[in-house]
Design a protein around this nucleic acid. Structure first.
Length: 288
DNA sequence: GGTAGACCTGGACGC
DNA sequence: GCGTCCAGGTCTACC
C-alpha cells in the first residue's frame, strides 16, 4: 500500500521526529538517519502492520506491505495525519515569533509540530510513564508494556503494536508492577479500564475547548498539573507550559541567575507570548 | 489553600 | 558487592 498525504506548509518530517522524545518510544522507530519514521500499528480490524513514513514534496507518504481495504487505507491516512499534525497551520505562530532572535531557527526549519500517538490513550499512558522518573526509565517502561501486551507483527513477532485499552484493561496491577511501572501501575490500569469500558472518552479531547480538556484530564488518576499540560500541548493547546524540574532549571538559569524558581516564574517568563507560550518555551534557544 | 510524606526505580556514590 | 542517598511528579492526609 502506498498513501500520499498533503501537509499545511511548511512541513518537515525531520522536525516532527526531532520535536521531542516520542520517536524513541515503542512502537515508533526512526531509520535511515532520521529520514524515515516507522511504527507498528494495530488497525481497528485487528490487523497489525508496519507503517513506513517518508517526507515528500508537500507532505508525507506512507508505505505498508500488503493489500489494504478502503477502510484500512482511510484509517491509516487519518492516524498518520494526526500523528504528524499535517493539518496544523503554524503561520500565525511564525508571524508572532518573527524578530525574536532566540526563535530565529524555528520557521526556517518548519518547527512547531510535535509528534503524537494515533490515540490520546497512548499519549496519556506514555505521559504517565514520564512522571517521576528518568527518560531512560520511560523508554524501559514503554518497551516493557508494548512487548508484554501489544499484538505482535505477523512478519516479525519481535515487534509489537501499542496495547489497546482492552488489552491493558485485561491485565492486573501486579503484572504491570512486574514490568517496572511501580506505583504508576494502578494509574495505567485504571485509565485502560475506564477507556475500554467507555466511561472515559479520551478521543473526544481532540475536539473540546481548552478548559474542558484540562478539567477532564485532571480528573484522571496519575495525571497531575504537569502531565495534563503536556497532553494539552500535544492536543494543540499552547497557552500553558508543562513545568517539570527541567523547565524550572532552564528558566532559573536563563532569567534568575540560578536561583530556585517555581511554576509561576516559568509561566511569567513566557507570559508575553500568550497563546503560543508552550511552543515558545519548547523551541527556545537555550544554548547560551 | 498549602504542606509533608509516601510511592518506585535506577543511578551515583561511599565503604 | 552492598548499602545509602537522591531525583523525578502525583496523591493523600493533615493543618
Amino acid at each position: 500500500m502506498h498513501l500520499t498525504l498533503s501537509a499545511c506548509l511548511p512541513f518537515s518530517l525531520r522536525a516532527v521526529i526531532d520535536s521531542h522524545g516520542w520517536s524513541q518510544l515503542a512502537p515508533f522507530a526512526v531509520e535511515a538517519h532520521n529520514e524515515t519514521l516507522t511504527r507498528i500499528e494495530c488497525l481497528s480490524t485487528g490487523r497489525v502492520v508496519e507503517l513506513c513514513i517518508h517526507e515528500t514534496t508537500g507532505g508525507a507518504s506512507v508505505e505498508a506491505k500488503g493489500r489494504f481495504t478502503g477502510a484500512e487505507r482511510e484509517e491509516v491516512g487519518y492516524k498518520v495525519w494526526w500523528m504528524l499534525g499535517l493539518g496544523q497551520d503554524f503561520s500565525p505562530f511564525y508571524r508572532r515569533i518573527r524578530n525574536a532572535p532566540k526563535l530565529a531557527h524555528v520557521e526556517p526549519k518548519a518547527m512547531g509540530r510535535l509528534l503524537r500517538s494515533p490515540s490520546v490513550f497512548e499519549d496519556a499512558v506514555k505521559t504517565i510513564l514520564t512522571t517521576n522518573t528518568t527518560w531512560q526509565g520511560t523508554i524501559r517502561m514503554v518497551e516493557a508494556i508494548v512487548a508484554a501486551h501489544g499484538t505482535p507483527l505477523p512478519t516479525d513477532p519481535s515487534r509489537h503494536a501499542f496495547p489497546t485499552p482492552q488489552q491493558l484493561a485485561a491485565t492486573h496491577e501486579a503484572e504491570l508492577r512486574g514490568l517496572g511501572l511501580g506505583y504508576r501501575a494502578p494509574y495505567v490500569l485504571e485509565l485502560a479500564q475506564h477507556t475500554a469500558g467507555g466511561s472515559v472518552d479520551l478521543e473526544a479531547l481532540k475536539e473540546l475547548p481548552d478548559s474542558e480538556v484540562r478539567q477532564r484530564l485532571r480528573a484522571l488518576k496519575g495525571i497531575g498539573e504537569y502531565a495534563a499540560t503536556s497532553l494539552m500541548v500535544l492536543l494543540g493547546h499552547y497557552d500553558h507550559i508543562p513545568t517539570d524540574s527541567w523547565a524550572t532549571k532552564l528558566v532559573s538559569q536563563e532569567w534568575y541567575g540560578g536561583e530556585p524558581v517555581g511554576r509561576e516564574e516559568v509561566e511569567r517568563a513566557f507570559a508575553p507570548w500568550g497563546e503560543w507560550k508552550a511552543l515558545v518555551y519548547w523551541f527556545w534557544d537555550w544554548s547560551s
